[in-house]
């Protein structure tokens, strides 16, 4: 059996919309993931340092108040500096369609917009992590 998938869930800046990420945490736990909660109102520096110490497969960022174009580039830059190039980075919440291409360019692996089901997120993470680990995709 392959090792459980570890995911760090984070919110950055002053975004106080915490329900989405809480629902996601429970959903991913029930899907068999190890969910590390990094708290709310964090800085990109803290999120990157946490991702390194926790050696997670995935960093999942929730953003509902429009800070993503400011925080995501910074976070990805810090993660690259720390050698976390292999870590999958996903973003979810209120993300305008027109930002998605730019986010993809800076290295965000996948953006989930409003209305995405938990199943879709879990399925995506499983197959993307399996591909990075070199395991067969089930």
């Amino acid at each position: 059996m392959s090792a459980p998938i570890r995911i760090l869930l984070a919110k950055m800046g002053l975004d106080t919309h915490t329900i989405g990420v809480t629902v996601l945490a429970k959903g991913l736990r029930d899907a068999g993931f190890e969910v590390i909660f990094s708290g709310f109102k964090q800085t990109p520096e803290v999120v990157a340092a946490s991702a390194l110490q926790e050696d997670v497969d995935v960093v999942g960022v929730s953003s509902l108040s429009g800070g993503h174009m400011r925080y995501m580039p910074h976070l990805l830059e810090l993660m690259r500096e720390q050698g976390l190039d292999e870590t999958l980075v996903i973003l979810g919440g209120v993300i305008p369609e027109e930002d998605i291409a730019a986010l993809s360019d800076i290295g965000v692996d996948r953006v989930f917009t409003m209305g995405t089901s938990l199943d879709d997120i879990a399925t995506y993470i499983r197959s993307a992590v399996a591909a990075r680990r070199g395991e067969p995709v089930t």
Binding site: A31, G32, V35, F37, G39, Q42, S50
Partner: peptide, 18 residues
């Protein structure tokens, strides 16, 4: 049941993360 977990202790210690 699922093997999943929420690891939440870190939240209380985040001020030491850096």
């Amino acid at each position: 049941l699922t093997g999943g977990s929420i690891l939440g202790d870190r939240v209380r210690m985040q001020r030491h993360a850096l």
